[in-house]
Design a protein around this nucleic acid. Structure first.
Ligand SMILES: [Mn+2]
Ligand SMILES: [Mn+2]
Ligand SMILES: [Mn+2]
Ligand SMILES: [Mn+2]
Lengths: 157, 157
DNA sequence: CCGAAAGCATAGCCATTGCTATGAATTTCC
DNA sequence: GGAAATTCATAGCAATGGCTATGCTTTCGG
């Protein structure tokens, strides 16, 4: 059986322990399952803040996907208790939705500003942050935040 | 119609232009479609380097998914021309597979070391890098690389 | 050399995320 | 006030990524 111990310890053990390895992949898969929800509620919140309302059409235009794709996702968000839908009047966030949106937007902001602060261009920071944000854990986020506060941040606030 | 111009310019225009916004989301969706392939070929390459061979069973154990999940994915990788499968003898990378693996591993290493260099713990860096890596574009990667080379890197090499 | 164990393949299921095509409801504007 | 345009809903399809259950092959230990 030999439960513990490496199989073939060669030159440099470039590979970490299997149980440790699997932990990273599991966490990444978990993050992937919540990415879209985070982007939606954050976008809805932004649209409301920016223009007073969030319409399905606006979401469609900003995400760059087809309208039924958004419609289906919104149904899921209603089911999960993040939004309320009033036909032809817009999308509204529930308390849970507002909380998730606030958390997501804050994390997004920090990640993007961190990228700017470390020297990434505005465009690349904007694009990369949209994907990176969902995989930044609490500890990393606080490190990023401290870095941004310590060094100058890219542009605003 | 009014094709150009903001709808309601309120206090701070927290929202970027729609076409600009959609670009980020599109890129993120594109990245998501290649994440798994990158992780697989990188892992296969690591397993071969570490133990001389990459077996389906090893991949199963390291990814933490069920065996048929890996079997299906490997079939896809064969189809896409990244690997070759010899039953009961292991998985082998094609030239395309080796190239993708090398690129992915290098990017992964840089991202993880960058996180360490900026002050993230070993465990958090390991976990977060597994997800972040796939969303780091060329420019951001070179910035990270320069940072690691300038400042001390977390641990090895 | 042969039976058990390990490794792998396959079938069939489900959830998610995207699409097109189409139709219904609501607003808007003349 | 009604026709046209917008907005939204729904049906149906496909690809991806996961699962369990099951059975076939190959390898290995005795
Ligand atoms: Mn975001
Ligand atoms: Mn995002
Ligand atoms: Mn990787
Ligand atoms: Mn990864």
């Amino acid at each position: 059986m030999m439960a513990s111990g490496k199989g073939k310890p060669s030159g440099k053990p470039s590979l970490v322990d299997a149980d440790t390895h699997v932990e990273s992949f599991r966490q990444t898969r978990t993050n992937r399952r919540t990415e879209l929800v985070e982007d939606y509620v954050e976008l809805i919140d932004d649209l409301i803040l920016d223009g007073g309302e969030a319409r399905q059409v606006d979401i469609v235009q900003r995400l760059g996907v087809a309208q039924p794709t958004v419609a289906k996702m919104l149904k899921r968000l209603v089911n999960d208790g993040f939004i309320q839908q009033k036909r032809y009047r817009g999308i509204f966030l529930t308390e849970a939705g507002k909380a998730l949106a606030a958390k997501s937007r804050e994390r997004h902001r920090i990640v993007e500003r961190f990228l700017r602060a470390v020297g990434v261009s505005e465009e690349a920071a904007r694009i990369d942050a949209e994907g990176i944000e969902h995989h930044v854990g609490d500890e990393t986020l606080s490190v990023f935040k401290a870095f941004v506060e310590r060094n100058g941040r890219g542009d605003n606030t």
